[in-house]
Amino acid sequence: MMEPFIQVENLSYAYEEEGARRPVLRDLSFAVEKGEYVAILGHNGSGKSTLAKLLNLILTPDSGKIVIAGREITDPNLTEDELYEVRRRMGMVFQNPDNQLVATVVEEDVAFGPENLGVPSEEIRQRVDEALALVGMQKYARHEPHRLSGGQKQRIAIAGIIAMLPDCIIFDESTAMLDPMGRRDVLRIMDNLNRERGITVLTITHYMNEAARADRVLVLNDGELYMQGTPAEIFSHPDELAAIGLDVPQCTDLVHQLRAAGIAVEGDCLTPAQCADAICAACAARGIPFNPPQS
């Protein structure tokens, strides 16, 4: 059997705070396959962002093991070149688009990563053009980032990561500061990168409908793995989620309430479209004439 792409075993990490140690991650173990789309859910302070920073060694774990593509990156003998190779493979997009763009011209910013890696000039040019095309921002190559919208800036940040040719991209609440349009664009790019480019996507979020798009969901609570499974499995436990301050997508919640009221509705109902279909089917089963909206 092939090894998983990311293997995390008994990972622990604590912040030093006024002399006291505040544990953030406790004995966390999980694995992510190559090409998987995984959402990491958890309320504030559950250790999600810390986990992301451990996966590309911005932080060093106190104990435990992280293996990425067969190489143990928590190995104390890891060379500096190997460290940067890990960071190249594990690209990361942050929450605030303003604080991750370095250059005053869009294409210069996208080139920043490959330049750091020592890629030859002609190849950087090619990678930058491809990355900008992939996020639909070619038109803005010579623009100044501060004149772009939040969603556009975030797309530039993603292009900057794509240009390093990563195997995996970690999105650390990358849609949290965006308007609905910007969020939709970024989510579409995330889907596209995963499905068409085979890039492993880890998305840290507290939007339930974003988690519902993933192949698998990991739920963190207080630095421990609380639940994991497909979105359908996770969201069929609304009570367990509510216990740690999380809810389920609105449409799923609606279906749960209908069921609780004794109305049989079939299916997982993770998206509004699925939910609408399920409710129409339930209506039809009861002989209620109902014309489903044309989607």
């Binding site: 590309n56 911005i58 942050f94 490959p114 020592g118 890629v119």
Partner: peptide, 23 residues
């Protein structure tokens, strides 16, 4: 602080061994 972390994530390690897109 955030920018420094983002730069590290993009493999910034100073001028050593760095190439440029525009020559």
């Amino acid at each position: 602080d955030e920018l420094a972390v983002a730069m590290e994530c993009r493999c910034y390690r100073g001028g050593e061994g760095r190439t440029r897109m525009t020559v």
